[in-house]
Design a protein around this nucleic acid. Sequence first.
DNA 1: ATGCTCGTTCAGTATTGACTGAACAAACTG
DNA 2: CAGTTTGTTCAGTCAATACTGAACGAGCAT
Lengths: 158, 158
Amino acid sequence: MSQVASVPLSPTDAAEQFIEQMGLLLQNDRLPRIAGRIWGLLLYEGTVFGLQEMADRLQVSRASISTNARLLAEYGLIRRVGKPGSRQDYYELGTNPFGRMLHVLEERLEHSASAVTESAALIPADNPGARARVEELSEFYARTLVLIRQHMAETGHK
Amino acid sequence: MSQVASVPLSPTDAAEQFIEQMGLLLQNDRLPRIAGRIWGLLLYEGTVFGLQEMADRLQVSRASISTNARLLAEYGLIRRVGKPGSRQDYYELGTNPFGRMLHVLEERLEHSASAVTESAALIPADNPGARARVEELSEFYARTLVLIRQHMAETGHK
DNA sequence: ATGCTCGTTCAGTATTGACTGAACAAACTG
DNA sequence: CAGTTTGTTCAGTCAATACTGAACGAGCAT
């Protein structure tokens, strides 16, 4: 008989599963897979990890951890912290990480929106149809952007 | 002196510029660049285009147009139409294309949300901290999903 | 100093996925 | 019928980019 209902896995398996899931999931948002795994690890464990420690745990080169941890810290999803008596770099979850995710989304949308708006401005006046259609797209982006911002304000994910 | 204010380009240049912009922009959403260009072309011109015609205009193989036009039609962003007396495939903008974009976003979010929810269910009960954190992420996705759906309902982009 | 322990950088490799051209099938045309 | 126009499929190529290992540099420890 096969298991139908979802059954808790062994502790490490559940962690692995989640970490890999995050690797794939953040990859959809154009982050390197390793960045997603780091994020998954820190979220799952909820504690501080050293750079070397993460490299071992995720079976990945130190170089990759270094690069991707800095990337995530840049985005504010994680934060670099010090540990007294150690000269290693440690990382932990950032404050309000979900808000930071929305922020990243917001920035991307902004970028897209302004690209479209600029394109619209370049359309010759003798082509009102094209201009109207492109402006409609531009407004669509603008509305979506407003939506995200409202959401951030309302949920405290500012 | 360099041009500071945005000046309308020649008709074809404005089109090219916008089309290429769309190519890059949709690429951010994990669509092939050519799909973005097709979308840009149909949105800009607002008329019906034949498959061969698009291949010529975009300087791209028929094979690519075929594949990517079908992809966009799948997403509902464009629509395949017939033309009396011709056996070519023609394509035009779909109805409510912006709503379809939101729909695609919605589907992706759904997928991510359920992946996270399933992962949470696999976490052993003796690790309540991890489970709580993962569930928080799961709820974050759920909230965002609700937001998108409200937006779709409100703006008529259903 | 000398040797460690770190993190970063960089050149090279590997992987992924987009794009193409050719071959094909189906449906038309004469 | 043979020959054309059309769309699709597929194997192969190309391009982008993630990842690695090695080299390096800075700071510690002894």
